[in-house]
Amino acid sequence: MYRLVIVFLMILLVSCGSETLPKPKGYLSLNYPEKKYEKLKVERPYEFEVAKNAEVVSLPKNWLKVTYPDLKASVDITYRPVENNLKELLMEAEKLVFEHTIKAEQIASNNFENKKNKVYGTLYDITGNSASQVQFHVTDSAKHFLKASLFFYSKPNYDSVLPAVDYLKKDMIRMMETLNWRN
């Protein structure tokens, strides 16, 4: 019996050591192309700079689709002339943003103003598993109205697409900052 107690105590002492912890979750190492921009090569009532790694698809009504095949994403751009309907255009743009409140955790807005180029608008960050994580609309308040929305060609999973959202949001901000209206 004495030997059994000694063996038990030795096992107890040997087993006391550093605590075994689960391995930490790994993070994806995503590499995105370096940012390089060029002027939009499609004739529209507006112009801005787009990323060189993007493909621009011309659509009817002066609309565009700026696609990012490697990221399986696109920025859909709609254009509407202002014809005494600016209030309706603004309400429609905001309605499209706030339709995402069902899946969104938060919608944050940032006003944008470039007095020199007469570009005024709002950029929306939509966090959560919504269909579109970044949107903006801009206008000159007299002739032009443009709306842009970021979409991924997959089921929304905000945590997974967040690095790509951050990367593409910079391109969308660059579009707003370099936007010029053509008369």
Results as ranks from 00 to 15, higher is better:
P33F: 06
S160Y: 09
S58V: 14
A51T: 05
A148T: 00
L86D: 07
W181Q: 01
F8G: 12
D159Q: 12
F8L: 14
R3L: 13
V14I: 15
G121V: 09
N110W: 03
A148D: 00
R80D: 11
I11L: 15
S58F: 12
V134G: 12
Y158E: 06
P81L: 01
Y124I: 09
E38V: 05
M10F: 10
D159W: 02
N53R: 04
F152A: 02
L9F: 14
Y46K: 04
K103C: 10
E99K: 14
P69M: 00
P22A: 02
E43F: 12
E94F: 02
F48P: 00
N31V: 15
K169H: 10
P33Q: 13
N114P: 12
S141D: 14
V97A: 01
C16Y: 10
A51K: 14
K61N: 13
I11W: 09
I173H: 02
D171M: 13
L28W: 12
D159E: 09
Y37M: 06
L30H: 01
N84M: 01
N117F: 14
E177T: 07
L59Q: 15
K72G: 11
K103S: 11
K41P: 07
D171I: 12
K147T: 08
L9D: 10
K155Q: 03
V138C: 11
A142T: 15
P22M: 01
V7W: 12
F48D: 01
K36T: 11
D166Y: 03
L40I: 02
Y153V: 08
L21I: 06
T178G: 07
E105Q: 09
A73C: 04
E38A: 13
T122Y: 05
K147V: 13
Y124A: 10
M175H: 08
T178D: 10
T101C: 05
G121F: 04
T178C: 04
M1P: 11
E43P: 01
L96D: 15
K95F: 10
G128M: 06
L12T: 05
L71G: 06
L12S: 13
Q135P: 02
K115C: 04
V134R: 15
L28N: 12
L59D: 00
Y158R: 01
M172S: 03
A73V: 04
K72H: 07
K39Y: 05
L179K: 00
T101A: 14
P163H: 02
R182S: 09
R3Q: 07
P156I: 01
L64E: 02
E113C: 07
L96F: 11
A164V: 04
V75M: 12
R80Y: 11
D166W: 03
N110A: 10
L146H: 00
K35H: 07
L89I: 07
K25P: 06
K23T: 03
F98P: 00
F145W: 11
F48M: 03
D125A: 05
M1L: 09
Y79N: 02
T122R: 15
E177L: 01
S141F: 13
I6K: 08
K25F: 10
E177P: 05
I102L: 13
E49M: 11
K52S: 11
A142Q: 14
T67I: 14
L86A: 06
Y167V: 07
M175N: 08
I77Q: 04
Y46W: 15
